[in-house]
Amino acid sequence: MTKEWILPKGHLSYWLRQLRNTASLIAPLRVDGDIVFKSLENIHEVSLDNPALLPSPKEFLFPQQESLFWVEDGTKVRQLYNNEKRFVFGVRSCDISALRLLDRFYLEGYEDPYYSLRRKNTVFISIVCNNPDPTCFCIGLGTGPYLEKGFDIQLTDLGDRYFVQAGNTKAIRIIRQWKFLFNKPKRVDYEDQYEVFLSSKARFQKRISLENVREYILAGKVKDSFWGSVTERCFECGGCVYECPLCTCFTVTDRVYSFGIDRVRLWDTCLFKGFTRMAGGILPNEKKILRTKRWYYHKLIHYPDVLGGFGCVGCGRCTVTCPGKIDMATIAIKLRDLQDND
């Protein structure tokens, strides 16, 4: 169920202010030369003319470091929940696509209670990209630059106004709370929105088909020597995993304080050899090449089989962060070239 409205640009800051009064509002802000997501103090600081490439909003549902529960006196277990209601404003379509897979991953089977609660308490207001970065390649994956469904609230910048789409009942309720700010869309608005979609698509510099890469790998055409040359350049920083909106691995550790024990979970990386360390020090993935392959296989082979979508939404963050330049886009392009020469 999708409902549409028009929000005149002049109404945006008023609306944001209202949102902030009901819950905490997180938005992209320009600070110290970068754009980061943080709690919004001054509404006018929101930076929407930014490049598409923002930090992943994964951290708002699955924080880098999170206390699971406290244990006092060795017997009393106290659960820690963050019950805060939040609006995350200004995220991009690729990340919303990622959330749809994350939801399946965390909520199906055994439901992760921490993710689940944060997800229920968070409303994402996304913006259609009309100016993709050179590193972006969502267009080949159907995960951007705009979405047909799956978003909470999606805005499209039409110059002097936003085309607003609410994708679920909760979102519709939120818009209706401040109904007087929104107008009914006219025919021209729909046409303008379509125009924006078209021009945005035309601006992409990279078009990558991960489907081809997957088939190429599944056909057994990618030799270990290729993965070897990729692995050689790996700095083992874990940046691709930390930045990826779809990487979910974590480790758990106990912190023993004098006043209790904190069981904490932290982001972890399958690219490290200790990740699979078994009791007694056996390292099943001691060879670095196995770990590199594992990351790519997990995203390209396993994810589509199990969750119905690639473990990559084409956000291009790994392209920016990888010191060895062996990110998803680069590898996909290299494999495409290899395929062409076959």
Partner: peptide, 27 residues
């Protein structure tokens, strides 16, 4: 409470990258 770390993209040295120690500098 300190909950995480992310690299600065505009910084002339690391340009959006960090090594594993930097990524875990909060812990």
């Amino acid at each position: 409470r300190l909950v995480g770390v992310s690299p600065s993209k505009s910084h002339p040295v690391n340009r959006g990258s960090l090594c594993v120690k930097g990524w875990n500098a909060h812990e």
